[in-house]
Amino acid sequence: MKKLVVALAFAGASAGAFAQGVSVEPQDTMQQQVSVIQSKLAELGVNVKQVHPSPVQGLQEVITDKGVFYASADGRYLVQGTMIDLVNRENLTESALSHVRLEGVAQYQNSMITYKADNEKGKITVFTDITCGYCRKLHRELDDYLDAGITVQYLAFPRGGLRGSGYTDLMNVWCADNKQEALTEAKAGEKPEKIENCNAPVAEHYQLGQSFGISGTPAIILSDGSMIPGYQPAAAISSAIDELNNNKS
């Protein structure tokens, strides 16, 4: 996701829109603080999903449709970046996003285009576009993933946003009778057949990806919610899945 200055600019808001904090007395409840933060971020077009206390006194962890932020309780200050626990060597921001990703993947399970491995040892969820070179490379190597026991399930992420031919083509792929075949043909460079009255959840997939912190494709989500930003060969993904499986046992 872009830096905060850019991220807020899209809403047409000045810095003062967030800087005008609302005074919150110490006795105010957590719910009141949440309401203040929700209100301030709503002014910037950001939808707040969850608010939790962060390990840093005075900052709340804010899960939004644009990723993870940190906000002061009075709604005056907003921080975008990575919070790291240096004692435990843990990326706290990534941990928060991992939970969000798992919930989101489960929510959209029924609208994925899935290629299932016969001897499945793990799954990956891939946010994909049909025009990006590395998305096409990953799909050309689909048999390598399947042979390695890796089920590949796709969600749509039009790189150009929710307009133009890239978005329309993904809509037509997701509305096709044979979605697997349509996606394979589209990634080979064929123009997807136009489907009348198409109502596919491509926009929802795109917004979900944004909330995961995705800005490009392919983006690979593993079973623990961690994300690999970019293409990786089947052998590398297989090793990552083996490590996750070993950690569970």
Rank of each mutant, 00 (worst) to 15 (best):
residue 25 E to H: 14
residue 26 P to F: 08
residue 26 P to K: 11
residue 26 P to C: 05
residue 27 Q to L: 10
residue 27 Q to F: 14
residue 27 Q to V: 13
residue 27 Q to C: 11
residue 27 Q to S: 15
residue 27 Q to G: 11
residue 27 Q to P: 10
residue 27 Q to I: 11
residue 28 D to E: 15
residue 28 D to K: 15
residue 28 D to T: 14
residue 28 D to W: 14
residue 28 D to V: 12
residue 28 D to A: 15
residue 28 D to H: 15
residue 29 T to V: 11
residue 29 T to N: 10
residue 29 T to H: 09
residue 29 T to E: 12
residue 29 T to M: 09
residue 30 M to R: 15
residue 30 M to E: 15
residue 30 M to D: 15
residue 30 M to W: 15
residue 30 M to T: 14
residue 31 Q to E: 14
residue 31 Q to Y: 02
residue 31 Q to L: 11
residue 31 Q to A: 13
residue 31 Q to F: 05
residue 31 Q to D: 14
residue 32 Q to K: 15
residue 32 Q to V: 13
residue 32 Q to L: 14
residue 32 Q to W: 14
residue 33 Q to K: 14
residue 33 Q to F: 03
residue 33 Q to H: 13
residue 34 V to R: 04
residue 34 V to C: 01
residue 34 V to M: 10
residue 34 V to Y: 12
residue 34 V to D: 12
residue 34 V to W: 05
residue 35 S to E: 12
residue 35 S to R: 05
residue 35 S to A: 14
residue 35 S to G: 11
residue 36 V to I: 14
residue 36 V to P: 06
residue 36 V to G: 09
residue 37 I to M: 02
residue 37 I to C: 05
residue 37 I to K: 00
residue 37 I to Q: 04
residue 37 I to H: 06
residue 38 Q to P: 08
residue 38 Q to E: 13
residue 38 Q to S: 11
residue 38 Q to V: 05
residue 38 Q to W: 04
residue 39 S to M: 10
residue 39 S to C: 04
residue 39 S to A: 12
residue 39 S to E: 13
residue 39 S to K: 09
residue 39 S to G: 13
residue 39 S to F: 10
residue 40 K to D: 03
residue 40 K to Q: 12
residue 40 K to P: 04
residue 40 K to F: 03
residue 40 K to S: 06
residue 41 L to A: 04
residue 41 L to R: 04
residue 41 L to Y: 08
residue 41 L to M: 10
residue 41 L to W: 06
residue 41 L to C: 06
residue 41 L to S: 05
residue 42 A to P: 04
residue 42 A to M: 08
residue 42 A to W: 03
residue 42 A to S: 13
residue 42 A to V: 07
residue 42 A to T: 08
residue 42 A to Y: 08
residue 42 A to F: 11
residue 42 A to D: 13
residue 43 E to G: 10
residue 43 E to F: 08
residue 43 E to Y: 00
residue 43 E to M: 09
residue 43 E to D: 12
residue 43 E to S: 11
residue 44 L to I: 10
residue 44 L to M: 12
residue 44 L to V: 07
residue 44 L to A: 11
residue 44 L to W: 01
residue 44 L to T: 01
residue 44 L to E: 06
residue 45 G to T: 00
residue 45 G to K: 00
residue 45 G to V: 03
residue 45 G to E: 01
residue 45 G to C: 01
residue 45 G to Y: 02
residue 46 V to W: 00
residue 46 V to H: 00
residue 46 V to M: 07
residue 46 V to D: 03
residue 46 V to C: 05
residue 47 N to H: 14
residue 47 N to E: 15
residue 49 K to H: 08
residue 49 K to S: 08
residue 49 K to A: 10
residue 49 K to E: 11
residue 49 K to C: 04
residue 49 K to R: 10
residue 49 K to W: 03
residue 50 Q to C: 06
residue 50 Q to S: 07
residue 50 Q to N: 12
residue 50 Q to Y: 07
residue 50 Q to P: 00
residue 50 Q to W: 07
residue 50 Q to A: 10
residue 51 V to P: 04
residue 51 V to G: 02
residue 51 V to D: 01
residue 51 V to T: 02
residue 51 V to Y: 03
residue 52 H to K: 13
residue 52 H to F: 12
residue 53 P to C: 01
residue 53 P to W: 06
residue 53 P to V: 08
residue 54 S to I: 02
residue 54 S to A: 04
residue 54 S to D: 06
residue 54 S to V: 01
residue 54 S to G: 05
residue 55 P to S: 03
residue 55 P to R: 04
residue 55 P to L: 07
residue 55 P to T: 09
residue 55 P to C: 06
residue 56 V to K: 02
residue 56 V to P: 05
residue 56 V to Y: 00
residue 56 V to F: 00
residue 56 V to I: 04
